[in-house]
Design a binder for these strands. Sequence first.
DNA 1: CAGCTTCTCAACCACTCGGTTGACGAATGC
DNA 2: GCATTCGTCAACCGAGTGGTTGAGAAGCTG
Lengths: 120, 120
Amino acid sequence: MDEDAERLDRAFAALADRTRRDLVARLAGADATVGELAEPYDMSLQAVSKHVKVLAEAGLVTRSKDAQRRPVHLDAEVFDLMAKWIERYRGEVEERYQRLDALLDRMVDDEDGTRAEDAS
Amino acid sequence: MDEDAERLDRAFAALADRTRRDLVARLAGADATVGELAEPYDMSLQAVSKHVKVLAEAGLVTRSKDAQRRPVHLDAEVFDLMAKWIERYRGEVEERYQRLDALLDRMVDDEDGTRAEDAS
DNA sequence: CAGCTTCTCAACCACTCGGTTGACGAATGC
DNA sequence: GCATTCGTCAACCGAGTGGTTGAGAAGCTG
């Protein structure tokens, strides 16, 4: 469970960068080489290579064999982990809202509609 | 759409830190003050205050009025944004897997079961 | 008012990050 | 073998981050 924390550290950090999110978006359509990925950006090839490395270390992406051409391939597993983490707390918060709404409804019922003045 | 990118930048960056994810997890259960939040950590109050500030600037959390006691409250909206982003690409990747599987199935059918050697 | 509590701001430090440039490594084509 | 192409590694730089300490602001309470 603690290694999940490390994976989440790396995954969230990896996606905190716009260029890397864009790489992910493009890789969702098709695998690509580093050179292909780098082409549209106003940035050195080395910089893109580093971004891909970050994505790979975060487990968001896998690469083919050590070779000249090594296409980058998107991997869904860590996305699952992140999605579950987010969904969990999103769900809890929404539950709390609903409980709060219910509570407020009950309060309004009890008070029968008085004190509608101090809502900021 | 571009400001969404900034919101995602901040939101993913905010959740890339374990302490802040823990704060979110605790706030999902109940609102709390900075002091309450800081108590379990081996860290100064100021450090926790900074973490809360990061969460607030990411829109993950809202705070009550400028005052002495200002409880911190989890906000679900940006979670939605992140969840949607992740789900989108996760979904595309899974689709591609399925298409790839289908393609491989067809190839196997065509070749009638030869060449099962070079799977790495 | 004084005093206490709660929290934030400011300055500082070590470290990380995103980018650069330059040099190198490994497969392909001749 | 040699040149070319694709990619990574290494060193560096400016900006940002996560932590610290010290001081101060804002609200309660006596």
